[in-house]
Computed example of a mutant assay.
Amino acid sequence: MMRNKLLACLLLLFSAPSLGIWYEAEGRAAIYSGDVASARERATQQAIQNALVLAGGTVTSLQEVAAGKIVNDQFEIRTAGTVRDVRVLSERRSGDTLFITIHADLFPQQLQCQNGRSRKSLLLTRFKVNDRINARTGSIDEIGLHTSQWLYDHLRAESLHSYPKRWLNEISTFNPSLYNNRSVVSPLLPLVVTEKTNTQLVLFAEIRDLSFNGDLPVRKWQQWLYSPPERNFELMVYLIDGISGELTLERSYRSKAPWEFKAEEAVALGSRQFWESAYGNAVSDVMSQLLTDIDTTLSCTPGRGRITHVRNDAVEVDIGVSNGIRVGDRLTLLHRAAHDGQDNQQHVRLLPTTVQLRITESYQNRAVARVTDPALLSGVQIHDLVELTGTL
């Protein structure tokens, strides 16, 4: 199984001309049908993205993150702007998985952001399986449950910029067609579920394609004559900020790999046999890329929360140590405002106020703060929004 693993080893090596910082990161990729070159490319791409995330970077595609051309054997990456140099330190193979370790020379003044330390609280829901007809082959109807659990577990273990607070074993009624504009006011569902679970963001996903490229062998003797058919996996993802209503990530992920199981076989999705198969590796590759994209997207997203209690001269907020909140951090009170745009859609804006709060106590999932100007305390109410605007 392929997983993103960021090495928490920051090498403070400065190059004289660039004053960049060298980051060490690892990427891994499954080897399909003996194609080591393709696995090397995917593992190196993942390692570079991991280094960018480790540095607090924002990158939506590898083609946007460096300048010039990096060539290693028959593999090259075209880049543009924030990565000066990449050096491959090691390459090793374990079974059908290739591991690449790199050093990347990054520019912290371009990559780091004010919210780089905060981890945004995230709600995951069970992925919806749209292609239910093809899901019958292999009896993988529950693949939405297993893939969403995979993502939840790996985000909790590996993510630098998100804190998966809840996983709901429920298929949502989210309608993506309502989001025809990234700044449109949030439909009710994301706003309600994030408020009820004290989270900032919610991730919905649909598995749209589980079809085969070619026919499955019908008779047992045919399975010895034909190569396993390729099976597709397509996942559509929507990551929504329930506080601002913004659609922060909308992306389709596709992969395919040989389906090595018998036509009539019921596959155990929780088994090592599935996840170590070619198709299971392809699915975990997709999930690992999604994990990286979530971290990249949230690396500079403002950390926000809600006021849950107001007492005397102090307030309590629903973000805490798990979100990277420390004693001494500063919060700004926000007001949500809506207005009609030229597209006849209603748009939402989060407006900062003059009310500043200072964290005095921080616990696992909550924190206590005091208004820096006590005269403004009367304007603070339960359900008001706050944003992390200053860190120690």
Rank of each mutant, 00 (worst) to 15 (best):
G341N: 09
Y163Q: 11
E64Y: 03
D241I: 00
N312D: 14
L12W: 01
V59Y: 08
R119V: 00
H146D: 08
F204Y: 15
S94Q: 13
Y253C: 05
V193A: 04
D313W: 03
G280T: 06
V327Q: 13
A55C: 08
Q356N: 13
L145D: 12
K128D: 15
R93F: 03
Q222C: 03
Q74F: 07
Y238L: 04
L376H: 10
G34L: 10
F212T: 02
R119I: 02
R366D: 08
L203E: 09
C113N: 15
Y363F: 11
F127W: 14
V88M: 02
A66P: 04
I21M: 12
A367Y: 01
K196Y: 09
H103L: 14
V202P: 07
L210W: 09
R231Q: 10
S277P: 11
I70Y: 12
T137I: 15
Q149S: 09
G245W: 00
R182A: 07
I143V: 10
F261V: 04
A104C: 08
R311Q: 09
D131E: 13
L377A: 08
L201T: 07
A369N: 09
Y23C: 04
S139W: 07
W259L: 03
A55I: 00
L52S: 01
L160M: 14
L145K: 14
Q74P: 00
F261Y: 08
Y179G: 02
